Computed example of a mutant assay.
Amino acid sequence: MDDAVRTDVDARSGVGTITLNRPQQRNPLSSSTMRLVTAALRMFGGDSSVRAVVIAADGPVFSAGHDLSEMVDRTLEEEQAIFDVCVEMMDAVQQIPQPVIAAVQGPAIAAGCQLAASCDLVVAADSAVFGTPGVRIGLFCSTPMVALSRAVGRKRAMQMLLTGDTIDAHTAADWGLVNVVVAPADLDAQVRALATRITSASPLTLQIGKQAFYRQIDLPQDEAYAAMAGTMATNAVTCDAQEGMSAFLEKRTPVWLGK
């Protein structure tokens, strides 16, 4: 894999990590980098030994967003292709069966903010900031808006989008964009602890739950309940659910079979 993106797997914990590796350029999300991230996500998604995925970045910046140098003097078709690649990457984050955690150590800007917001969970160092400043350069952050508005709600998203101002990690946590804020030195340990806590559950149950969450989140309540009643019934007859309920009643540790 191109060195713009690095991947590794901790065999003991089953946590796969995708690291943006262009720190001198502020980890831009060029078309080639986004394709590499998408490929890494799909690779991990198809590997049953990988129980959770972390998206991280080297250097002081998580990601400054799109590589603007590839967006100047382009045709409409060429610009469309860039954003299609971006959407494909964001969709892949939520389509793979494993939980995806963003480990944000520094500024997550524009499409970088979008990438963090698209992840299932976000752990941020207190040095991180989040922003969608495209309005200031004449390019409204319309695709970042999709993920951002689903994380922080309409008014707060509009504030970030219309002003282009950044928010700090603690504000991002208050607004619902970030789950946990930690000291920079504690970021990796906190991410690993969270991933380990999650992966103690049945991998099949995690997959069912993640898929169900995104399927129901934008449905009207009655449709969501109807869909989720069927999902929960189907989940209840799996081997892992039966094992988990039996283990609870028998006061023992469950043994997951992944089926």
Rank of each mutant, 00 (worst) to 15 (best):
M158H: 07
A103Q: 07
A81V: 04
F44V: 04
P133F: 11
Q114Y: 09
S13F: 12
G131V: 06
L161T: 08
A40S: 15
E243I: 07
D165N: 12
A195K: 05
C119E: 04
A236E: 11
R215Y: 01
L121W: 14
A52E: 01
G45I: 05
T19P: 07
G16H: 00
L249C: 09
V50G: 05
A56M: 05
M1Q: 14
A81N: 08
A183H: 03
Q25G: 02
Q25D: 13
S246V: 06
K251R: 10
I82N: 15
F44M: 09
E70A: 10
A193V: 14
A125V: 07
D10N: 14
C86T: 14
A185P: 04
G59K: 07
A169W: 00
W175I: 04
P99F: 00
E88K: 02
P133K: 14
T238A: 05
A227G: 06
D91F: 15
L29K: 06
L161A: 11
L204I: 03
S63H: 09
S32L: 08
R51M: 08
Q221I: 12
P23K: 09
N179G: 10
P28E: 00
Q221G: 13
Q211V: 02
A169K: 05
Q211E: 15
A81R: 06
S200P: 02
R192H: 14
R22K: 10
V37W: 00
M90L: 15
R42Y: 06
A147M: 12
V87L: 14
F62S: 04
D10M: 07
A173E: 13
V237Q: 11
A157E: 01
I18N: 09
R252S: 06
T238V: 07
Q216V: 12
Q211T: 14
P107D: 05
A201K: 01
P220R: 11
M90S: 14
I167G: 12
E77A: 12
T143W: 15
Q95W: 06
L204M: 06
Q159R: 12
D10T: 07
V181M: 02
E79W: 15
A189I: 05
R252M: 04
D73F: 05
R12E: 13
T238K: 03
M34S: 08
A172M: 02
K155A: 13
